[in-house]
Design a protein around this nucleic acid. Structure first.
Length: 287
DNA sequence: GGTGCGATCGCCT
DNA sequence: GGCGATCGCACCG
């Protein structure tokens, strides 16, 4: 068995973003599980947009979001979340950690028991609908509804790919003066952190990730996650919900430095498991 | 690095 | 009136 070490330097840093010229950065998983950093200069006229798909990046539509919750939560891993600010700046981050909230019998879900309120209405809307809600009075979390009544996927962590300096500024605005400068891997390593870093606001609630002009999801050549690299673990912060607290409905990219909380037990268990458990594979995951 | 604790307020009962 | 799908920071080893 080989173990993969991901060096810090693999994370693109702010120097990769040059003034006035877009630089597209990808970290690609190679067939041998190694990683390759790819830089591409993208002229202004060719800047990526929802209406400009290159062979490298393609916007995902309703058909992607219209899949069962657990499957969608895994399928999100490796995809690129893009946030276009009003000044045209595009912030990009690759999804490395998600959680599935199933609704119905899932007691940890805001929509448990089919409970529908003004707050969680987006969870019952069509797959791809964004559900943004405030938590602890001061933070926001971003979910995306999936197939299934009241089911949604919580986006927990991103690997910043471009716009890191803007993200740093957005994050710093919420922190005390004199706080240490955040490293790239600290910009989006938590559900509320990614909302701050990408300027996802409350008003994004109920918007459609498949068609919105300011936020969308892309697939690119670097988004393939190998099944053996996906950790399934209990969700974070739902300890009070009995047996549902222990179900392995959190998914993250193993060994990735941007994951918010590691679960060493789950990682150890999968090391001893056969890699032939195809039941956990999403459609984009290859062996 | 890991752990413990306080902040802070909308939502729901 | 109580709680929470979190975070930052101080403290400890």
């Amino acid at each position: 068995m080989t173990t993969r070490k991901r060096k810090k330097s693999l994370l693109p840093n702010s120097e990769d973003q040059t003034d006035g010229e877009a630089v597209k950065i990808q970290i690609q998983c190679q067939p041998d599980h190694s990683l390759q950093v790819v830089h591409q200069n993208v002229g202004k006229d060719e800047s990526l947009s929802p209406y400009f798909s290159t062979k490298d990046a393609v916007r995902l539509d309703y058909s992607f979001f219209n899949q069962p919750c657990v499957q969608l939560a895994k399928a999100f891993l490796g995809k690129v979340l893009v946030r276009k600010l009003t000044d045209g700046t595009e912030l990009r981050g690759r999804v490395v950690e998600t959680e599935a909230y199933l609704g119905g019998e899932d007691k940890a879900s805001h929509s448990a028991g089919g409970k529908r309120t003004e707050r969680n209405a987006a969870m019952f809307m069509k797959p791809g609908t964004i559900y943004v809600y405030p938590i602890y009075g001061i933070y926001l979390c971003m979910n995306v509804s999936s197939q299934g009544e009241g089911a949604a996927v919580l986006l927990r962590s991103l690997e910043p790919l471009s716009g890191q300096d803007v993200m740093r500024g957005l994050r710093a605005a919420k922190r005390r003066e004199g706080a240490k400068i955040l490293k790239d891997k600290e910009l989006c390593n938590g559900p509320s952190k990614l909302c701050q870093a990408l300027d996802i606001q409350r008003c994004f609630d109920r918007r459609d990730l498949a068609t919105d002009m300011e936020v969308w999801l892309e697939t690119d050549q670097g988004d393939t996650i190998h099944a053996g690299e996906v950790v399934s673990a209990p969700r974070i912060g739902v300890e009070s919900h009995g047996e549902w607290a222990t179900k392995p409905l959190r998914f993250y990219s193993r060994g990735h430095p941007c994951v918010s909380v590691l679960n060493r037990d789950a990682e150890r268990q999968m090391s001893t498991q056969s890699c032939t458990d195809f039941s956990i594979l999403g459609p984009h995951i290859i062996e």
